[in-house]
Design a protein around this nucleic acid. Structure first.
Lengths: 325, 325
DNA sequence: CTGAAAGCGCTTACAG
DNA sequence: CTGAAAGCGCTTACAG
């Protein structure tokens, strides 16, 4: 039915193995033969059969993207955005991407194990960095190539990961506001878990001390949140910033006239309603690209241990809008 | 290296073909043999090699999910949500999902063609319904199984699609507000393109006329939007509702005390800041499930034309919150 | 109910 | 630089 390597070989008057070599552009084939074979492929409309290639070569040419098992996280625009950029970069390298999701961590692990044991994928990109995760543990134990997007809280030396410099992000946030003459700056969060929070807050705190400014950690609670003398506030992410702004308004204060709001991630939420939020863009697209690049290296390296434990820090930039004065 | 069907056969003392039949639970194999073989698989830790299965059977056991080529759409929570539910339903049926994305329609089509010609997938779920789309055209021409999420504006008779009843949604919106004694109800949109808008608006209009109420179509423009006597407003989606509420506030009016706001889709945007938005939930999870079910039927049917052109309407429900009085 | 055999469409040492 | 052959791990008529 479909045209195979054999058909092409017959048409071009060569052996099927020669066609195979032409496909991968083997240097041992003469240009003359290559041209002839390529012409045959063209006129017959040949396309490779992925399954046959995988079976014969032992490589799937596909990678798996693992989403966090928590439901609500999946609504974050981050995931769709990084998936797009991963897929794009993968396509440019002739890699297919398959996905793994699950309501529970058990479901997720089951799917990941199956994908790998059936040899549907050569490796994984993990999109969450929670601590002591069984899925990640499995990948490490079985020595399966993977790269993490985010910073793991443990075994940083055994894992290849790509992330922003969250501590620097915290520092830069303070620096930016301080340069605008803010002297009382607090940090607002709705979670104190995770390396992202820890590092951003640490950076915030260090820079605050260094510049001799005042401020503290404010835990956001919808019914009970108030600023108390702050002229500016740094918020963990854009949706939270939206809520913070509303709370500030309810206090009878205006953003940015009375208090400035600076946030992170630069997601859709940042430019939904006014004041549009000034927010650090963490370059999600680049994060995805780099993840694919690194994973490819891991998959294709013979000595996997050699390039393990690399960390890639992707630069960020500030998207200035209306919420800071 | 990995354990194969041969190893299992040797261990159980049967022919490899018997093992293959046990795997697919063929009725022609005796229970005694099944038990014996399954035990062997268990103790040896056997898992199927997907590539070999695909090559031998001619079926990939995978489906492709095609995302719209437009960048900003991908930030909508809808896509991540439906992808999750598609993947979940697929996993329950031992189907893998691969994705196709692209900045341009050309890129997208290229990827789709490649996926299919390499036999990486058996069929597709298309997540957008714009008119005269080359990707969809390709699928139809080549007679490739696919189902559309949304309502196509042409060739409705040739395409299997799943969607909500958008016209009914428009009617129900009016009915709900009318029952709360609203008499002046307008419909707000920021786009007049697409079947979704058309049908919701048509439903709105019919019901408005039927109940002898007043109201009109309001085009949202950030700098220039005002309500003019409306006691309630129906908005195309949640993010837009957020903007509409802000505009209403700027007019010195309160939601819901002065004007009620009712919206569609029940996305994350609906419960971000107060007033939380009363919104119709369009049951995205179910949409995804049904899409997978129908696609499976298409793929496995011998006479594809027989079940073509089915439409599946998924029910919706109203999520009541704070924006309607 | 089960076995033996051919075949799916590639890749890759091995020869020459 | 190219060919002939074996093999990747399954499935599936065909026999019996």
């Amino acid at each position: 039915m479909a045209v195979t390597i054999k058909d092409v070989a017959a048409f071009a008057g060569v052996n099927p193995s020669t066609v195979s070599r032409v496909i991968k552009d083997s240097p041992s084939i003469s240009d003359k033969t290559k041209i002839k074979v390529r012409k045959a492929m063209e006129t017959l409309g040949y396309t490779q059969n992925a399954a046959a290639k995988i079976l014969a070569s032992g490589k799937s040419g596909a990678i798996g993207v693992i989403f966090p098992p928590i439901e609500n996280k999946q609504s974050r625009p981050f995931f769709m955005k990084i998936l797009s950029s991963i897929n794009e970069e993968a396509r440019n390298n002739d890699i297919t991407v398959a996905i793994a999701t699950g309501h529970s961590i058990e479901e997720l692990e089951k799917q990941v194990r199956l994908m790998y044991s059936e040899k549907r994928v050569d490796g994984f990109i993990v999109l969450y960095a929670g601590q002591s995760d069984p899925v990640r543990q499995y990948l490490i134990t079985e020595n399966i190539p993977f790269v993490l997007v985010g910073t793991p809280s443990e075994m940083q030396n055994e894992i290849t990961y790509v992330d922003n410099d969250n501590k620097l992000l915290g520092k830069e946030a303070v620096a930016y506001l301080a340069d605008k003459d803010h002297k009382h700056i607090s940090f607002v969060t709705d979670t104190e878990e995770g390396v992202v929070f820890e590092e951003r807050y640490m950076g915030f705190h260090e820079e605050l001390v260094k510049r001799d400014l005042v401020g503290k950690l404010l835990h956001f609670d919808e019914n009970n949140f108030k600023v108390d003398g702050e002229s500016a506030v740094i918020v963990m992410d854009d949706p939270l910033a939206l809520m913070v702004i509303q709370s500030i308004n309810k206090q009878g204060l205006n953003v940015p006239d009375d208090v400035s709001v600076l946030s992170f991630n630069n997601s859709v939420f940042a430019s939904l309603i006014h004041p549009y939020i000034t927010s650090f863009d963490i370059n999600v697209a680049r994060l995805g690209e780099v993840a694919v690049e690194k994973l490819s290296e891991l998959i294709n390296s013979d000595d996997k241990s050699k390039i393990y434990s690399e960390k890639i820090i992707v630069p960020f930039y500030l998207k200035e809008r209306e919420s800071v004065k």
